[in-house]
């Protein structure tokens, strides 16, 4: 077994996350899918850090985590306020911005 198994796994996770974003309507689940995609990227970063023998990849992954945390805070706040006004957490219901 070589390192690229990790990478293929990360690619699969990323794809599953992306498809989840496309097929799920609950905004919170969509958000979770995005988190999954970020995690898949983190796995890639850590794998390459190991491959190159430097810690930089791990640091980038750390930053991704922090930014993801910030993003989750804001995103969930947005979902909350949308839910308050529309009584719905479905991304399909927030479709006023269109032609």
């Amino acid at each position: 077994m070589t390192l690229n198994y990790y990478l293929v796994l990360a690619a699969l996770l990323f794809t599953i996350g992306a498809v989840g974003v496309l097929v799920r309507r609950n905004a919170i689940v969509v958000f979770m899918c995005i988190e999954l995609m970020l995690n898949a990227v983190n796995l890639t970063l850590i794998t390459f850090a190991r491959s190159t023998g430097t810690v930089d990849g791990q640091i980038i992954a750390l930053f991704v985590m922090v930014v993801a945390a910030a993003e989750v805070v804001i995103g969930l706040a947005i979902i909350m306020s949308i839910y308050r006004t529309r009584r719905s957490a479905s991304v399909d219901d927030a479709n006023l911005l269109k032609y």
């Binding site: 992306a18 974003v21 496309l22 991304v91 399909d92 479709n95 911005l97 269109k98 032609y99």
Partner: peptide, 23 residues
């Protein structure tokens, strides 16, 4: 443009589909 404008459905998931297609 009005026919192209139909692509702007307002559904986030449609746009996401476009992004994935681009990717």
């Amino acid at each position: 443009s009005s026919r192209l404008g139909r692509a702007q459905t307002g559904f986030v998931r449609t746009y996401a589909l476009g992004m994935l297609g681009g990717a």
